[in-house]
Amino acid sequence: MSTDQVIHLEKVNKWYDDFHVLKDIDLIVNKGQKIVICGPSGSGKSTMIRCINRLEAHQKGTIVVHGTELTNDLKNIDLIRKNVGMVFQQFNLFPHLSVLDNISLAPIWVKKMPKNEAEDIAMSYLEKVKIPEQAQKFPGQLSGGQQQRVAIARSLAMNPDIMLFDEPTSALDPEMIKEVLDVMIQLAEEGMTMLVVTHEMGFAKTVADQMIFMDEGRIVEQASPDEFFNNPKSDRTKLFLSQILNH
């Protein structure tokens, strides 16, 4: 089992000044696992996955990704970021670059790939997210759902083996959520290791093999979806589920 272990968080703590955001987080993610993380806002779920690719630094505990420990060493950080893709709530596409350039930028500059090769790869991922016809447009000309799919393609173009999703559908109009979730489901079926912060419980039921519920900087409950939805143990989880499932 331990050879398959790709992410290992041990007693991770983080503070914003006096505010204790993450409290003794322990988490093991195995290769190919899909973990859905939910919890009320401010519970530290986004912060936790942002620590995994060092967009945030933790102050105590250890984070090991693919056997590389995250420290202040820039070399380790670069190594980990090359293998860990991330999709943001606000898409964060580069508005001054065309869709094709958005996707081929990192392969060209980080992997030093020749331009035409990088563009071929970019096109293949655009086909995968089903919008190859938008390649020459700029992000501002696309709908939110299309932008998020470009953002997913942009991450995939670096060929990561772990994908982090930070509330990928929260900024979308309801009718666009499905097109993004469909891409994510497809990705999950192909065996990608995924950590997804989301409140899309339908998606969680279809895809997740682990559910995590966080509150006030702690992992309150961690269980299989079946158990999590039908037989939650903590009262806090029960309350949260009743609120988001019956709204």
Partner: peptide
Amino acid sequence: PRGQVEAAQSLGLSYWQ
């Protein structure tokens, strides 16, 4: 926006890139 830098960093681009 901060997200621009974060997106670039998460793709592995260096500070100067």
